[in-house]
Design a protein around this nucleic acid. Structure first.
Lengths: 235, 235, 235, 235
DNA sequence: GATGAATGAGAATTCATTCAT
DNA sequence: GATGAATGAATTCTCATTCAT
């Protein structure tokens, strides 16, 4: 009847290798086509497996997406810590975080879109490992601010989480057009602007209490005069 | 699917009425099911027309979505101006803008999701009337800040557009979880926090220790009197 | 790019006609291949529509099956009543019912299998129109038995529904092998056997009444006495 | 799907033990999910082997099903004979057979469904060991009836196989709803009803018909004698 | 102006089965 | 003897969109 379909050449890989192959292929295809427009068949083809094989390792298409983003995040986080370790000072460290986020968006707009549009909006997001990784990711920013407070550089009443939302919200809002494929932006310049703006509201008003030092001086001087008059000297 | 050809009662409506009916139905269905999961058949059914008729008034599904959001925005903007007209003071006006945005998200999370996920991310967004409306919408915020600067309340070097991104970015970032269906938030309290944080970085810092200057003056005057009494002049 | 796929020749039919076409095609294909082995694509092809069109009229494959059987049943029931009207006598009418059931199995083994294996066993069967039709179908048998009782031909304590189960159960059990594709059976002869067996347990045992033996004895004794009296002995 | 290659602990079992493990797992899974909805992977998992291993002991999924039912039947038959040995009297023994069948259905509806829907309907059924076992199973019923005839309790002209079909057909028909998951039934009461109905058609009408002809003859003869005595002749 | 029948093209998914190791 | 990676082939179902009537 019909000749027994000749089995394609089978390459046997370990689970880890195969998973890596598929995720790598998926990352590429998702990057090129987005989520909805990326057929599993494309991913399978690029990973050199049949579609069905993907389901051995991933529950479904969404699971594959989640894992791809997860994998990407993990790589990034390791990098973060490495670089952050060499940076000192609240402003510098904060600027690095913002710049890094902007750079990521700049370099991987497609994956970021995946994250922003498909993962973060899903009802199951908070049960996701990506969610956890993201907390990890933004926690560094919180830590930097906390350290700034402890070092006396920042006001003590800074609403931590709101500042974090402000930083990331501002960063992303700034890049919507770019993510949409319109125009470009300069991560360096943008990072400078954002860090300036953010810190302008958080830094201790040392130079800025111009009235206060004057007052203190004047009071001290007045007191000194009184002291002179009364003949009592400071010890 | 099953019923014996329900000879549809044809209601003749004016073009405007028909369009309104369809948009109203679409808004409901989109609100309930989102974009992808809202079949045109559902919308047609609810609007009491057949699917084909929708194409008489709208180019395609996306066009319908765009029009629905557009319509919604228009209603909102009129409202904005009305209310904003009665509010005085940079802080108050800014707080209103933020509070209003938060309230909208709070009341219409589904439509906001549509806007954030489906419209704003589309490559064609910037050619959209919604885009224009949105500029309109955020322009009011810019105007308020400008007025604040002109009134001398805000620093002169405020990076206007970045502040706008900060306001809206922060606002939206704050509400992601809610938009995802998790938990709740209080628009009033959140608006207060955000406006505080934003203004803390923008306000002119002279008049900012309002108590202090008075005190300084009174003290100085008191000291002067003392000096007068003792007949000793400052050096 | 790719030339706009030339639309196939579209034949427009009324809903009723199209439904009839599809059901007819489905009946054939189901008959030939059974349920599981009948791809919708085959049915679509034979009905000269595309697969998707089937879903305009039927919720899913199972719904199509249900409707096909339903349609078939409806035709049968009309026939039943017509023929039954011309038959008199409990035995004859009962025999007709049994014979008709056997004939149906004999003529449409495949559709019967569909009914027995796929419909009757489904958890949703009792909410089905087929279920209702089937009740209708077997109700005639109950009626015949009831009439037999009222006419004094059958015992009054006949457990109606159990008898129905016995008739249909026996009939079907007899035909399992045939339904499986093994051998053949003669509906006429089988009907005769079954009706005999069934009625043998249901018919009034006119002479059999337990009162009779007593009566017989008493009569015999009376006769014996008469004989004694007359002095004549039995031969 | 997800776990990091769980280096499976390999338990070496004898062929018999392994087969038993798999069959036991399969019986459970089939019971819970039916045939079509039971993936081999589930069975393998529960049997603590990999899917491929099942093919070492069973030709394919259907073979596994057949073996599972076979195994189940074997257990039942042994039981039957044991219990039947202690029961005397045609009615009692027949009732036991019916009751036992009903009880089996009552206790193992899922396995019975497997048997009724999947095995008995397959074209290969009659070449199956289950078929043979089933003949064995129903042969006991035939034997009981035969013994009843030989003992003079039952009519001599009982159509043996038809009676068997009637018994099992009735029994099963009665329980379709239960097998479908609707409602319940009482095996004891049902067995009583069925055995009554069946025997009502099979039992010798000793007291009844055989007496009757005798009586009639004797009466006629007595009447004839009386007539002789009285000198009046029949016309 | 409206209807609603029909299209079409895919897209995800499932699993029994095989076979290299 | 067992593993478990990989296959493959089909199959159901969904819907936006078109267009003859």
């Amino acid at each position: 009847m019909n000749s027994p379909t000749p089995r394609r050449q089978v390459f046997r890989l370990s689970r880890e290798q195969r998973v890596a192959e598929i995720m790598s292929a998926a990352r590429e295809v998702f990057r090129e086509k987005g989520y909805e427009d990326a057929p599993l068949s494309d991913i399978a083809e690029r990973a050199k497996v049949v579609e069905g094989s993907i389901y051995r390792y991933f529950e479904n298409k969404r699971d594959l997406l989640v894992k791809v983003i997860e994998d990407w995040y993990e790589g990034m986080l390791a990098d973060y810590d490495l670089q952050l370790a060499g940076i000192r000072g609240t402003r510098n460290r904060l600027r690095f975080m913002i710049w890094r986020h902007l750079s990521t968006i700049h370099e991987e707009p497609a994956l970021c879109n995946l994250m922003f549009q498909h993962l973060r909006t899903g009802g199951d997001y908070s049960h996701t490992a990506v969610h956890e990784l993201n907390r990890e990711y933004t926690r560094r920013t919180l830590d930097i601010i906390k350290e700034g407070i402890e070092a006396g550089e920042l006001r003590e009443d800074v609403p931590l989480r709101l500042v974090r939302d402000m930083i990331y919200g501002c960063t992303e809002h700034r890049t919507w057009a770019y993510l949409r494929g319109e125009g470009d932006f300069d991560p360096d310049a943008t990072a400078d602007m954002i860090v300036d703006l953010v810190l302008s509201g958080l830094e201790r008003r040392k130079p800025q209490q111009p009235a206060t030092p004057d007052l203190a001086e004047r009071l001290e001087r007045a007191v000194a005069r009184l002291e002179t008059m009364t003949g009592s000297a400071a010890p």
